[in-house]
Amino acid sequence: MRLPCSHIFCKRQKTCPCCRKEVKQKKMVHVNKLRKLIGRLEVKCKNAEAGCLVTCPLAHRKGHQDSCPFELMACPNEGCTSRVPRGNLAEHRQNCQHGAHQRCPLGCGATLCPAERASHNCYRELRKAWCQRQERSRTLVLCLLRRMRKVYRSANHIRRQLAQLGELLEEDDALLLGAPQEEAEAPPRRQHWG
């Protein structure tokens, strides 16, 4: 930023760091040519003291830092506060005391030890469990269908028997109702006294 006093600095402040004059935001001017020039300056990686030998333009430093093997990274294991270089992170995770049992990073909820994490595939396991449930559901549906057919056959059999019973009762009623009329029409019998 160029200040009204003609001094140029990288960060905005309320006063000029050289002459201490008060600076208003409206009076600050971006110096784009200077920004581009500074961005092209070759700089060492911020991890040079840790062993990184890379030098790159200042504008690209952040990009390198995001992949630098010497950049310190926090251990992703729950409870571990270690910060290790990115290049050593995989080895650290394998030997980390806090990595003994971790939840599945994909979210299935399984707690895994380091040996299990290498072969864990919750999608495969969930698919297998889903297929087993589907098979169990099919079996239950077929069992229910068989039972429904059996109930249907039994209900039809009972209906037929009730219909036959109803017909028998009607015949008996007809016989019972018809018997007194026949007796009334027949001549009376004489009884003999012995």
Rank of each mutant, 00 (worst) to 15 (best):
R61V: 05
K128R: 10
K21D: 13
R35P: 00
A184F: 07
A90N: 12
L37S: 04
T15Q: 14
P69M: 01
S67F: 08
A118S: 06
R93A: 08
D172Y: 15
E170V: 13
A186Y: 05
H120V: 03
G178R: 15
G178C: 11
C80S: 04
H30S: 01
Q191V: 14
A50H: 08
R189G: 03
V23I: 14
V54W: 00
R40K: 06
A115L: 12
R190N: 02
L175F: 15
H64N: 07
C56L: 15
W130T: 02
L162C: 14
W193Y: 13
I8C: 12
P105N: 04
L142F: 04
A118Y: 08
E91T: 13
L34H: 07
K33R: 02
E185P: 00
L162N: 11
R138E: 14
V141I: 15
M1R: 10
K33M: 02
D172V: 14
K128W: 00
E116F: 07
R189T: 08
E167R: 14
A184D: 14
R93G: 04
R138P: 03
H30D: 01
C80A: 05
L162W: 06
A163D: 03
Y123L: 13
N156H: 09
S119H: 10
C5K: 11
S82D: 09
L140S: 07
C143N: 11
L41N: 06
Q164Y: 04
G51C: 02
N77M: 12
C75M: 03
C80M: 07
L37Y: 11
H60Y: 01
E49T: 08
E182Y: 10
K27Y: 00
K14C: 08
L53Q: 11
R190V: 07
V84D: 00
R35A: 07
R83V: 13
L162P: 03
P85N: 14
R124I: 09
E49I: 05
C10P: 06
V54S: 00
H60P: 00
Q25N: 02
K62C: 01
G63C: 09
T15P: 00
Y152T: 13
R153E: 13
A50P: 01
G178V: 08
E182A: 15
L106T: 09
E183F: 02
R147A: 07
K128P: 01
R159G: 05
R127A: 09
P17R: 03
R146H: 04
E22T: 02
A129N: 06
C52M: 03
V43N: 00
H7D: 09
L72A: 10
H157D: 15
D66H: 10
R103M: 12
S154A: 10
K11T: 14
R136L: 10
K62G: 00
R83W: 14
L126R: 06
